[in-house]
Structure formats: C-alpha cells, structure tokens
Computed example of a mutant assay.
Amino acid sequence: MLTLTADIADLKACKQLVAAAAKEFGGINVLVNNAGLHHRGEFSERSPEQIAAMVDVNLRSPLYLAALVLPLMPKSGPKAIVMVGSLAGRAPLQGAATYSSTKSGLRAFAYALSDELRDKEINVAVVSPGPIDTRFIMDEIDEVEDIVYSQPMSTPEQVADAIVKLAKGTETEITMPWFSGKLTTLGYLFPRFRRASRGLLYRIGRKNKDKYRRRQS
C-alpha cells in the first residue's frame, strides 16, 4: 500500500503523484477522480478566485490526471477511469452554479472519453450521487441549499460500492438514489417541470434539514 497526499489544483503535484504511484506499482489500472470543492452560495456572492478554485479542483485536475494516467495503463486487461460527479451535474442547481457546471462538465467528459476508449478495454464512467452523509454537507448544513436535503441521503459505503462496480464493469453511469436520478433527467429535459417542482422540493428539504440538525445535536 502506498499513501500519498497532494494538492490536485497544483498540476506539478498531480504529475509527481501519478509518477510515484506508477513507479511503486509498475503502472496504473484504475483512476478515481473523487476530490471536490464547493464554495457555497449565489454566483454573484463568490469571488473570482473561489470560482477558479472550484473549476481547478472539480474539472481541470480530473482531466489532467486522466491525461497523465492513460499512457501508464497496461496494454491488455481491464482498466478504468471513474469520475465522482453529482446529481447537480445532471440538472442545474441554483445556489451552486459553478459546482453544478463543473460536475456537468465532468459527466460530459466521462461520456465522451468512454466512447473514445471503448475499444481499448478502458471503462470510463461516472457515479452521480445526491447528498452523501459526510462532513462535506453535514458540517455546513446551514450553508447548503435546502433542496439538496430533499433527496434521500446515500452513505459513503454505497458510493464506494458504485465506484468499484463501475471500475469492474462496463456501465457508463450510476445515479444515486435511482429515483433521484430519474428526477434530474426530467428536470433537465423539462425546465418548466424543474422550476415548478422547486418549491415543493425546498419545503421537503427544509423539513429534512431540521431532522439532521436534531440528529447532530
């Protein structure tokens, strides 16, 4: 086992990280792009630096890491690149314009690269979860948009299982929870439906938020 730390917003650090892993194991079979950054709030309230940082961590670095890893993958045998996206990348989310945009871009990249590499035994895929019961949203519960909590919460273990399934299989995307994935598809295809249902989802999210606050206290 090899454990390394790096700031993936630093492209030089990414290059050193990949080189160290390839040297230790003689190549790289699986890349999981899991890092994420979210400066929450309306776009107009965020600084240009915060916006750039989200783009760097959530989109630029995963593409850069994929480009670094591809030449180091074995010529034969199964290989995979798995992106950790978000339901916010499947349907626009107000209060998270930059985050939603970067996750949407990451999802588009996964689908495009999947088609490019389909004949090379490299499965490129994306897992798109809704809210996950981690500190990423639970430590900032008052800053997170209420609508986020309108969907059932997944566990880190469930997301990890989905990543492993994608890395071992041929699917291109897993949405979590399944029904929430269908809702985001409807919201993307029919913007009026998304806007019309927003009030209800916010009310559900506020009620669930209160439950989570009581749980934490």
Rank of each mutant, 00 (worst) to 15 (best):
M54D: 09
H38M: 07
Y202D: 10
R118G: 04
S101D: 05
G77K: 00
G181E: 00
S104P: 00
R213Y: 06
A125K: 02
F43C: 03
V84Q: 05
N33T: 14
I163A: 02
L113K: 07
N208M: 09
P152T: 04
A66D: 05
T155D: 05
S180R: 04
L117H: 11
I163H: 04
P71F: 03
Q158C: 11
E140P: 09
V30Y: 09
T185F: 14
S154D: 00
A88K: 01
L113Y: 13
R198D: 03
P74L: 10
S114N: 14
Y149N: 02
G95R: 08
R90G: 05
G77M: 01
P152F: 05
V126R: 01
V18C: 03
P62H: 08
G95T: 03
E173C: 11
A6L: 05
V55S: 01
T134M: 06
L4W: 11
W178R: 10
V57M: 01
M83G: 06
V18Q: 12
D142S: 12
F179C: 06
A167K: 06
A91T: 13
T3M: 03
P71A: 04
D7S: 14
V124R: 00
D161N: 12
I81R: 01
R40T: 10
A9W: 02
L70N: 13
A108G: 04
V18I: 14
A91I: 08
A167M: 08
V126G: 02
F190I: 14
Y212W: 12
G77N: 06
R215F: 07
G36A: 13
G27R: 05
A112H: 11
K75R: 13
D210Q: 15
A96K: 03
G105S: 08
K211T: 13
T98H: 11
Q158I: 02
E121W: 06
I81F: 08
V69K: 07
F25S: 01
F190N: 12
V148E: 01
L68M: 12
L17A: 14
L65V: 11
S76I: 09
Q16K: 14
A108V: 08
F43R: 09
I8P: 02
M1H: 13
F109D: 03
L87D: 01
L65R: 10
R135Y: 04
I147P: 00
V126A: 02
R40M: 12
N58M: 11
L68W: 09
D10I: 15
D56A: 15
Q94S: 07
Q16S: 14
E42Q: 07
I174E: 00
V55A: 01
E140H: 15
T170K: 15
S47C: 10
P129G: 12
P177S: 00
R90M: 13
K120V: 10
A91Q: 10
L201K: 08
D146Q: 02
L4K: 08
E45I: 07
K120G: 05
